[in-house]
Design a protein around this nucleic acid. Sequence first.
DNA 1: GCATCATGCCGGATGACATCGACCGCCGCC
DNA 2: GGCGGCGGTCGATGTCATCCGGCATGATGC
Lengths: 145, 145
Amino acid sequence: MPDDIDRRLLTLLTANARLPLKELAAQVGLSSPSVSDRLRRLEEQGLIRAFTVEIDPAQLGYTLQAIVRIRPLPGRLHLVQRLIEEIPEITECDKVTGDDCFIARLMLRDISHLDRILDSIADKAETSTAIVKAQPVLRRLPPLA
Amino acid sequence: MPDDIDRRLLTLLTANARLPLKELAAQVGLSSPSVSDRLRRLEEQGLIRAFTVEIDPAQLGYTLQAIVRIRPLPGRLHLVQRLIEEIPEITECDKVTGDDCFIARLMLRDISHLDRILDSIADKAETSTAIVKAQPVLRRLPPLA
DNA sequence: GCATCATGCCGGATGACATCGACCGCCGCC
DNA sequence: GGCGGCGGTCGATGTCATCCGGCATGATGC
């Protein structure tokens, strides 16, 4: 659906969402009204979900991250899912195939913080926790080909 | 480090990174030059890593996502890490404690696409794959308290 | 083959916006 | 009590986004 110019716009905006239209226009060889049109369309059709900001969690006090696999106890699936949605330290969660029903990313202030959160779901689900030691690939775009 | 006003700015920008300074200023009760100053500071100190754009991968043709746990064979850790960084379909990867050394998110065009990518690392690492069925929590901010 | 229409683009005018400089008030410090 | 730095406001200026009218292109229907 998106053509080559759309893809270039997406790439540019991924690197800096606050680039002025004029600059974007110059980079892709169009006028600013045209770029404005395209962005509006991309946003309307949902390809661009939102313009947002990448934050360093460490500087907000979340010096620790964990990836937790969550297996709800029998009959507790929906309860656990609701719980997951309500724990604000879970900043991302996927529902997946396999024994591990959910895979969640936790933002934590310290290791006791982890303990507290896992405790709060321990009676409704089994969990396997992996502490994040490094992030070799930080969120990036898939190929746009 | 960030005060209450900074946190409100972050919240506003997370929802819409292209909000004009004037609007931000009105929302937090400051003038636009002040807001501009604060944003510049937040960006310089790295708390704001980047202004970026949230994209719907499905509309780029990536109708499938998978979470893959990757255990490099003995002696292959660095090789595998380099490989991971070079596979563009891996849009996110954490290095974690435990048997699973890496946890990666893959963007895929179809199920055979998954097979192709896993094949390309099968002789250097063991993998466990979970297909994403739903995303109960889409990337969001942790509490800013 | 031609008229018609929709689409995507441009250029210029207008109004909104960001930026810059000058100035002010508050607070901690000597 | 005077001083300096920090964080703020205000107003002027230049840049920018948006709106509007018009044009070229390609598809559609007669």
